[in-house]
Amino acid sequence: MGDDLSIQDNFQPSGAIYRERSFNRNSFLHTNKFFYDNGYIKKKGRLFNEGSSIGVWYYFDESGKLVKEENTDEGYGFTPEKLVRYCEKNKIELPKGYHESGFYTQVRKETLNGKKVWVIKYLIPGGDIQRVVLDGQTGKELEKKKVPFVSS
Rank of each mutant, 00 (worst) to 15 (best):
S53T: 11
L66C: 08
D135C: 08
E88F: 01
Y18F: 14
T79R: 02
D4V: 12
V133M: 07
F35I: 05
E50H: 08
V84G: 04
Q8H: 02
S151G: 02
Y104I: 00
G136E: 02
D9P: 01
Y86D: 06
I120K: 01
S151L: 08
Y86W: 14
R21F: 01
G114S: 13
Y104D: 06
F60E: 02
K96Y: 13
R19E: 13
E81P: 06
K42M: 11
G127D: 09
F11T: 15
I41V: 15
N32I: 12
P125K: 14
D61I: 00
S52I: 08
G97I: 11
Q137M: 09
G64E: 03
E100L: 08
L5Q: 14
V147S: 07
S151E: 11
E81L: 11
R108C: 04
L112V: 13
K42P: 01
D135Y: 11
L142V: 05
F48C: 08
S151Y: 03
K115T: 15
E62S: 10
L134Y: 12
V56C: 09
D61K: 04
I92S: 05
K146L: 10
P125G: 10
S27L: 11
I41W: 05
R21C: 02
S52V: 02
N71V: 07
R21E: 14
